[in-house]
């Protein structure tokens, strides 16, 4: 009895963890108009429905654009800062590190609210660009921390060797440092893509006419439960899971071996 208890707990926990996701995915194949039991189907009609919906597809494209763009910029800025702080002695470097990490400690709502106030004061319009700026703010600390943590003496020796052999700073970075740090940079990039892809509140506050997918889903939610929402939600989940699995398989596996 006592031996079985842990396994029973494990099963109950997994049911709790997977209940919402399973309901979401199962009823995305519902043939009727409501995503609730009893299940009729399977049918792909709701997937066909959202894939032919111009607004949803535009939002999906916007989300991919914002996620890829903001992740790339956050990685670039994070890498440069990590390189500068790890390889050079700078005055106030502890303070700089603290400042770069600071946005992690503030809720997304507050980051978005601050940016919204400034953008409205300066008279700049809200667009995908402003949402992207917000996403770089929240992803930069993570990118910096991940890349900074993986910069060790091992790469520094290779960099010194390259410099002794006559490589200039640009070559050292592009031919030695970046290839050696590729797993960390990829991890930072995919983590940023996932977070930006799923992010709602900053996009909601900082976009206007062109919106990202979570914001589009939010406005669809007003009409209540619908198998269309299940279909689009399942697709969003599939993309996030794919990014996470890529991270797990290609980055962390490699890291360990």
């Amino acid at each position: 009895m006592m031996r079985l208890l842990p396994w029973a707990y494990l099963i109950v926990a997994f049911v709790f963890i997977y209940l919402p996701v399973a309901s979401l995915v199962l009823f995305s194949f519902q043939d009727g108009g409501l995503p609730v039991p009893p299940f009729e189907g399977p049918s792909l009609r709701w997937y066909a429905d959202i894939l032919s919906d111009g607004d949803v597809m535009a939002a999906l494209g916007n989300s991919l654009l914002v996620a890829a763009g903001s992740a790339a910029l956050a990685c670039a800025l994070g890498f440069l800062a990590a390189y500068g702080l790890a390889r050079h002695v700078l005055p106030g470097s502890a303070l700089i590190r603290g400042l770069l990490i600071a946005p992690l400690t503030v809720s997304y709502l507050i980051v978005g609210l601050g940016l919204l106030i400034v953008i409205q004061r300066t008279g700049l319009g809200l667009s995908l660009m402003t949402a992207g700026i917000g996403h770089v703010v929240i992803n930069l600390p993570l990118c910096f921390a991940i890349i900074y943590a993986s910069m060790g003496a091992q790469q520094q020796n290779a960099e010194r060797a390259a410099r002794d052999l006559g490589a200039d700073e640009f070559r050292v970075i592009t031919l030695v440092t970046i290839p050696m740090l590729a797993p960390a940079i990829a991890a930072a990039f995919f983590l940023s893509v996932t977070l930006s892809w799923d992010e709602f509140i900053i996009s909601f506050l900082l976009t206007r006419f062109d919106v990202t997918l979570p914001v589009e889903i939010w406005s669809m939610l007003r009409s209540g439960l619908s198998p269309r929402l299940n279909a689009i939600g399942s697709l969003v989940f599939l993309v996030s899971v794919t990014a996470v699995l890529i991270l797990e398989i290609f980055v962390f596996r490699k890291n360990r071996s």
Partner: peptide, 27 residues
């Protein structure tokens, strides 16, 4: 070297100042 190091850190630092610290102070 010191200036060079600062050059690497500057973009991220300016970004954080402009889009996080300043908005926070304005708020």
């Amino acid at each position: 070297p010191r200036l060079q190091g600062a050059g690497f850190v500057a973009p991220a630092l300016l970004w954080t100042l402009a889009f996080f610290v300043v908005p926070f102070l304005v708020m």
